[in-house]
């Protein structure tokens, strides 16, 4: 569990670092980014996990979203892992951008040849938090999760599958109902097999329907001019309908003129960090 520091840069009084370690779950070297706010020098801080979208590494979020100032002010440690195992030499892992490398979909694969390495769900909910808790000044009782697109899907399912584990959850343009969208169908059939009933265990819209009702405040921002929204990859309406029916609190903001990019994320990242800070620093 040795951590190897790849980089460290001072940012808004804190430090933006990148580490590499040998992952037990994924059986490969994994990088993750961690931002330590100034407050972490003197005490334990809450941890907020960011899950990135398709094709991303830990670098996209830390270099493009501009979240540091808000994280520094609210005193949050923000952890951004990679989106999939890398360099596992699995046949076909680099064949397409929406499956395999950079597209782990935050599930534990059950199908060969993926099931050995592609255990991103266990990695982000178990191994990584243990690693972070053991090596950084964070309060294990206070953690939250958010993400973008595929990472938005990952954040939602992590929160919905583990009631009480995360204090809050939010998402930018999440894939809300993967079992019904082309990306989800491709990934789930690849990682989980053809039995669609297994897919529902990783589908936010389905998970809401059986969510036990522990208090969870969900904030979702969605660009109105997001091409994947009109392509039917994200399907937020299904999720909202399910939440309305189950009275799971969601504020869904359809943002006029914004697309799927990090420009959109950068615009509203402060709102999301405040949303989490409200619960993490309560």
């Amino acid at each position: 569990m040795a951590l190897k520091q790849i980089s460290s840069n001072k940012c808004f009084g804190g430090l933006q670092k990148v580490f590499e370690h040998d992952s037990v779950e994924l059986k490969c070297k994994m990088k993750f980014a961690v931002y330590l706010p100034p407050k972490a020098e003197t005490g334990k801080c809450p941890a907020l996990y960011w899950l990135s979208g398709l094709t991303c590494t830990e670098q996209n979020f830390i270099s493009k979203s501009g979240y540091h100032q808000a994280a520094s002010e609210h005193g949050l440690v923000i952890i951004a892992p990679d989106t999939s195992p890398r360099g596992c030499n699995i046949k076909g892992e680099d064949e397409s951008w929406d499956f395999g490398t950079g597209a782990g979909f935050y599930v534990d694969a059950t199908e060969d040849p993926w099931k050995t390495n592609y255990r991103m769900y266990s990695y982000v909910t178990e191994e990584l938090p243990q690693l972070i808790n053991a090596n950084f000044p964070v309060d294990p009782q206070r953690m939250s999760i958010f993400g973008h697109s595929m990472g938005g899907h990952g954040a939602l399912i992590c929160a919905l599958k583990n009631p009480g584990k995360y204090k809050s959850v939010s998402a930018f343009a999440p894939i809300c109902n993967p079992v019904l969208c082309p990306w989800g169908k491709k990934a789930f059939s690849g990682y989980l097999g053809t039995d669609q009933s297994k897919w529902k265990a990783y589908d936010a819209t389905h998970l809401v329907k059986s969510y036990p009702g522990s208090q969870l405040d969900i904030l979702i921002d969605q660009g109105k001019d997001d091409q994947f929204l009109s392509d039917g990859q994200l399907l937020p309406d299904n999720f909202i309908a399910a939440c309305t029916e189950k009275k799971v609190p969601v504020v869904f903001r359809l943002q006029e003129g914004y697309d799927h990019s990090y420009y959109f994320i950068a615009t509203f990242i402060t709102d999301h960090i405040r949303h989490h800070a409200k619960y993490l620093n309560a």
Binding site: K247, V250, F252, L254, E256
Partner: peptide
């Protein structure tokens, strides 16, 4: 008005 949906 912004386009905002509230589930509860």
């Amino acid at each position: 008005t912004p386009d905002i949906r509230i589930t509860v």
